[in-house]
């Protein structure tokens, strides 16, 4: 009776473990990805940068640095992902309206919709896509951004770890007059000029190299064999000293 009770407890226990195991496999998507940020085709930004994202479960940490942006103006920045997107930065042929620039909508087929808004404070969801008062204003044309504890859905976390997401920093000054202006309105918000929302810098997030690297063949190593020789030699000396000492003691006993 008692034994069968124990068995039942054991079975229940293992059954209870199953969901835990299932949950742990979800963390298999943890990863580190990074992107070199380059000027978006046709939009003429003379800048660059780099972004990294660490994925742990459904929490991400983003670090990003960039330069060459319009100084002192808000630069919306996002992680984009779309299952149907190409998971890359837009190219010149994405300029569907043939106006010589790529706006955010035209970049859609390449990078998909916004999944994370890289705001400095507050909400980080797609709802903050155009929260211009919470994005970095690139003092001196430069951005140095770090934000952790950003919650995302499991599918977004998986997409980022799988190298399918794209970082885009928006905001271009086509006429080099030091501000967002111009007759063309934004495809995202008619109250903003297209300069304020057109993509400036872009980079597809791909996996960082995994683990260390095999940069040695051992030809000049200290090697385990040498340590073996040291031990052997030391051992021989000890044995010699032991037997020598023994014979000396015998000698003394005799005299």
């Amino acid at each position: 009776m008692r034994t069968s009770h124990k068995l039942a407890t054991l079975a229940l226990g293992s059954a209870a473990l199953l969901p835990v195991l299932g949950a742990s496999t979800a963390f298999a998507a943890d990863g580190n990805v990074s992107a070199n940020l380059k000027p978006v085709a046709l939009n003429g930004v003379n800048g660059s940068g780099m972004a990294s994202v660490a994925v742990k479960g459904t929490t991400i940490t983003v670090t990003m640095a960039a330069n060459g942006l319009l100084a002192g103006s808000p630069h919306a920045a996002h992680i984009h992902f779309g299952a149907d997107a190409r998971h890359e930065c837009p190219i010149a042929s994405d300029d569907s309206n043939k106006d010589g620039h790529l706006n955010t909508t035209e970049g859609g087929p390449a990078y998909g919709p916004v999944v994370v808004s890289l705001t400095k404070t507050g909400d980080t969801s797609a709802a903050s896509t155009l929260a211009v008062d919470r994005f970095d204003t690139a003092e001196g044309g430069k951005i140095s951004y770090e934000r952790g504890s950003i919650k995302v859905t499991q599918s977004v976390a998986d997409a980022i770890s799988a190298g399918k997401s794209v970082v885009v920093i928006h905001g271009v000054d086509y006429n080099n007059d030091g501000k967002y202006d111009g007759a063309t309105k934004s495809d995202l918000a008619p109250n903003l000029p297209t300069e304020a929302t057109d993509p400036a810098l872009c980079g597809a997030l791909s996996a960082m190299p995994a683990g260390g690297m095999q940069t040695g063949a051992g030809g000049a190593s200290s090697g385990t064999s040498n340590e073996g020789m040291l031990a052997l030699g030391g051992g021989l000396i000890l044995v010699a000293a032991g037997s020598g000492g023994f014979s000396v003691r015998r000698n003394r006993a005799r005299s």
Binding site: G216, A220, S221, S222, G223, S225, N226, E227, G228, M229, L230, L232, G233, G234, G235, L236, I237, L238, V239, A240, A241, S243, G244, F246, S247
Partner: peptide
């Protein structure tokens, strides 16, 4: 026994020296 001890010690010393010589590494 004494001769054997001396020989053993000598061999041991040589082996240790060889080990040290090769133990530099990067």
């Amino acid at each position: 026994v004494v001769v054997a001890s001396v020989v053993l010690a000598l061999i041991g010393a040589v082996v240790v020296l060889l080990g040290i010589h090769g133990a530099g590494g990067p």
